[in-house]
């Protein structure tokens, strides 16, 4: 293999493999080996598709996330098995709805987990636990003004991450 191509593959791996693994593990119910197979297939498809590599890193990542998600969903369909959250034998349309809900959850979980610990904490207090600004300020030991501004930075950081992953319409 020419040196340049090996380098290209290595760069793809270093830049995107961890982010993809975090996403795909959440689509495979924590099956890390299966997730890694999907990540491998996704990166190989990118490597074979030079147009993807010419894009900016941000849109390349969105492409990779879309491909990874398709591989997993096609696999669900092919095995006629459903993601674990689905227990009954629902009609095709509902399977698609549920699959897209599972994908949404994996996307947002990946993005939240990728935030800084401080940003995650402020969202945990205000959003998840439904605390008021002053309650959150007390719980986190910071002034109320900081709760508001930190919420602002956290949510904008989350938006940027989701956008990179191609998760926003």
């Amino acid at each position: 293999m020419p040196v340049g191509e090996a380098e290209l593959l290595r760069a793809l791996h270093d830049e995107h493999a961890a982010a993809l693994q975090n996403f795909v593990v959440r689509l495979t119910n924590g099956d890390r080996a299966r997730a890694e197979d999907v990540v491998q297939e996704t990166l190989l498809r990118a490597w074979k598709n030079p147009k993807v590599l010419d894009q900016s890193a941000g849109s390349a990542r969105a492409w990779l996330f879309t491909v990874a998600r398709r591989i997993v969903i096609d696999d669900w369909r092919a095995r006629r098995s459903r993601p674990e959250v689905i227990t009954a034998e629902p009609p095709e349309q509902r399977v698609d709805d549920l699959a897209s809900r599972v994908v949404d959850r994996a996307l947002i979980d990946t993005a939240v987990a990728a935030l800084s610990a401080e940003h995650r904490a402020v969202l945990r207090e205000t959003y998840l636990r439904g605390a008021s600004v002053s309650q959150a300020a007390q719980a986190l030991g910071i002034p109320p003004g900081t709760v508001k501004s930190r919420t602002h930075y956290a949510l904008h950081a989350l938006r940027a991450t989701l956008e990179q992953m191609g998760a926003l319409s």
Binding site: A18, E36, R101, I108, V112, A113, A117, R124, Y127, L158
Partner: peptide
């Protein structure tokens, strides 16, 4: 989208999966 998130994702030590 936050409405679909799992509570575990907000944990202090949210898990990072490395390949």
């Amino acid at each position: 989208l936050l409405g679909s998130a799992s509570p575990e994702a907000f944990a202090d030590d949210a898990i990072q999966y490395e390949p």
